[in-house]
Write a protein that binds this DNA or RNA. Sequence first.
DNA 1: AATAAATGAATGATCGTTCATTTATTTTAT
DNA 2: ATAAAATAAATGAACGATCATTCATTTATT
Lengths: 192, 192
Amino acid sequence: METKEKITNKKAALLQATLTLVNNHGFHKSPMSKIAKLAGVAPATIYLYFENKQDLINSLYLEVKASFSECAFKAYQDDLPVKKGFEIIWHNIAHYKLNQIDEATFLSQCDSTPIIDEEVIEEGLKHLQPLLDLWERGKKEGIVKPLSNYILYAYAVYPLSFLLAIQEKDFYTLSDKMRKKAFQSAWDAIKV
Amino acid sequence: METKEKITNKKAALLQATLTLVNNHGFHKSPMSKIAKLAGVAPATIYLYFENKQDLINSLYLEVKASFSECAFKAYQDDLPVKKGFEIIWHNIAHYKLNQIDEATFLSQCDSTPIIDEEVIEEGLKHLQPLLDLWERGKKEGIVKPLSNYILYAYAVYPLSFLLAIQEKDFYTLSDKMRKKAFQSAWDAIKV
DNA sequence: AATAAATGAATGATCGTTCATTTATTTTAT
DNA sequence: ATAAAATAAATGAACGATCATTCATTTATT
């Protein structure tokens, strides 16, 4: 138990350090030496837990993506009415993106940059299936516009990434009231 | 004349090469040697036109941002009705993002990554003012939702970046019919 | 005493940048 | 108009710095 905890402690510290450095300085200015220093270990120790730098960042991506997905579908059941189900997922995602700012920023960076291996990106995409299923049902019921899931995602979920980026830069903070209005816009964009 | 043309030729070739390499392999795997080779010049030649690597990528960002803005407001006049004006700008931006894929992909990467100097990012933001002015007018006229410009941008323009990313990965291509529907979603999201 | 975890210094490779030199272009003098 | 001189553009090899990774050794745990 002790052993296993300590192992995951150092591994977790390394992942956290990588997240912080890559967010603040970019992948190209986040050398292994700095990652090790921030995590409080020696550079060589990284290679006890990860094959190399690429494996380190791939692992971080998958871990963050998993935590994101877990949050996105919290309290969601696939037998809810379409709008209600979407509302739950949307607010879950909003909550994640606006509270777990570091993680969400990192995901944004990875999704618009070729730093993560393609296979790993695809692996991370599988988690979203319940939302796609929900939209399919909404289309069948005539509640959701008959657009492709990509377009629906672009209008209903993706905008949150922009709001996150804005908030990150301290230009703007989204109040609860605003959040409800933002959801209304998301729903307006995809509802029939 | 000859001189000046040749100068801009090499400079343009270097910017184009940087765009291609950074898009395909990321900033960290785009060494000056490869940029030079792709542009057909010697590595040292880069330093005749740019101070250093950072200046090279900053310059590229500003150039692409300028071309984007020029396209965005083509044929736009600020005395048009709000919806019509927005429609023109939206389609201009859609046209740019879905046709000048390389440039748009590069902008996305720069906007969610700390590779461009902060001052340069701000410099590039100034171009969008006419769109913000249009939205302000729309709010005054009661046509556009009384949301902050950031939120309006997030729902009306930012989704195009996602569609671009999808198209880039060859999962999906946006037909003209779909483009009109996509505009409808954008307008639905921000109209009162 | 045996095994596992962690280390720091060393290595080899890569990269950004520089500079002495070469090549091309423009200007000047005849 | 042409050759020589002056200037500008371009180069490739080389330098120093930085980085990812390794390994012999030390430290901690079993």
